[in-house]
Every structure is written in structure tokens, then in C-alpha cells.
Amino acid sequence: MNDLLAGLMAAIDLIIHLDRDLVEISLRSLQVTVTAVFIASLVGLPFGAWLAVTRFRYRRLAIALLNALMGLPPVVVGLVVYILLSRSGPFGVFNLLFTPTAMIIAQIIIVTPIIASLSHQSMRDLWYLYHDLLISIRTSKWQRMRTLLWDGRRSLLTATLTGFGRAIGEIGAIMIVGGNIDHLTRVLTTAIALEVGKGNFPLALGLGIVLIAMAILINLAIHILSRTEREGTW
């Protein structure tokens, strides 16, 4: 109980004084996660729509696989990315290990299946409603995907935010491929792990509170921004 209180105080202290390190690692957390989620959305959202409007022989298998990939263990993803990016690995020449780029790559791999799968679920429901009409109007596959993506944008936003939530709190993979290097790859989650290791629970908890607050704020901000467009709720 004392630790919790101390953690709250530490969080307040960090925020009030706008601790420079805190600002730096928070921004890096945001940058890594937002970049990863953006790229994952660019891939995952259309893929979900494509999967909804396309019938092919191994479709069920593909969907099952995608759902399974949602549960990819981050540590394993981290390890694989690590081995690939290591100097002695196939992509070693790019010198990406222990850089924010490596963290972004790992997060893209973790988050894309989540976004694609959630996208597929809502696109599939919408496609069920639209199916007859869009076929009747003789839309092309590309037009169908565009229509579903645009008309379903609110649920896709939710899919993206789910991916964001997963990525911002992720540590297993980014610790391995980022290395938690001060001023280079340290982000909120790895900083928390570091402080726990030092037995500095109040600071660790303070950082944790900052992390949660940030996630909530981002979610709220995006929801408010996208709601002002129209009154309706889909």
C-alpha cells in the first residue's frame, strides 16, 4: 500500500517537473509505437478487408492462422528479429539491431496480425450487410475493399487502437531487440523493468502510471477527434 502511494507521488513528481528523461523516453515510446501501429495498419487493415471480400481455397486456413498469430509470444518475435538483425544474421549489414528501427520492426510483427484479424472481423460483418448491394452494383474487388474500409472506419479505428494498446505496453520483444540503451532505445516499459531491477519500486510505479495515463489520453484524444465529425454512432 505504501509502495502504491509512493508510486503515485513519484508519478506526480515526474509529471509536474516534466522530468527531461521522462519526456524523452515517453516520446520515444510514442514514436516507436505510433510508427509501428501506423505501418501495421497500412498492411493489416486492407488485408482484413481483402480477406473479407475474397473467397479462395485456403481462406479458412488463412483466417485460423491469422487468429493464431494474434497470440504470437513477443519474446519469440524479439528473438527472431534479433537473430535476423544481428551482425552475424542475414540482415546484419543494415546495422539495425539495438536501434528504434529494430523495435519498430518487432512491434510491426506483433501488432499486424492483431490489427488484421480485428479488421477482418469487422469487415466480414460489414461485408455480410453490403454483400448483395455491392455485387448488384457490380463493384470491383478494389472498390469493395475501399467501400468497406471507409464505411467501417470507426471499427477499424478501434482495431488500430487495440494494436496501439498492445504495442505501447509491450516489453518482451523490444527489450531484446532494442537493448534498453539509455538515450537511444529506452522506452517506458524497459525503463520500468530497469527500475524494478534496481528495487526502485516507487519510480517504476511512477513510470507505469505515466504509461497508463498516456495510453488513456491517446485513446480519448483519438475518440474525441473522430467523433466531432458527426453525431452518429455506427
Binding site: 460489414l126 450487410l129 453490403y130 448483395d132 448491394l133 448488384s136 452494383i137 457490380r138 463493384t139 472498390q143 467501400t147 471507409w150 464505411d151 467501417g152 455506427w234
Partner: peptide
């Protein structure tokens, strides 16, 4: 084709009507 249960797109009325022309 007009279906027994009308299918409306999740857009404004105007965009609904214009949709086949967009396509």
C-alpha cells in the same frame, strides 16, 4: 435491384444515392 430489406451504406443519404455513380 432493390432488395426487400433496404441495404443502406454507412454514409450520408446523398453519398448513398451517388454511390453507384462513384463506382
Amino acid at each position: 435491384f432493390v432488395f426487400q430489406a433496404p441495404v443502406v451504406l454507412r454514409r450520408s443519404c446523398l453519398e448513398n444515392i451517388a454511390y453507384p455513380l462513384f463506382v
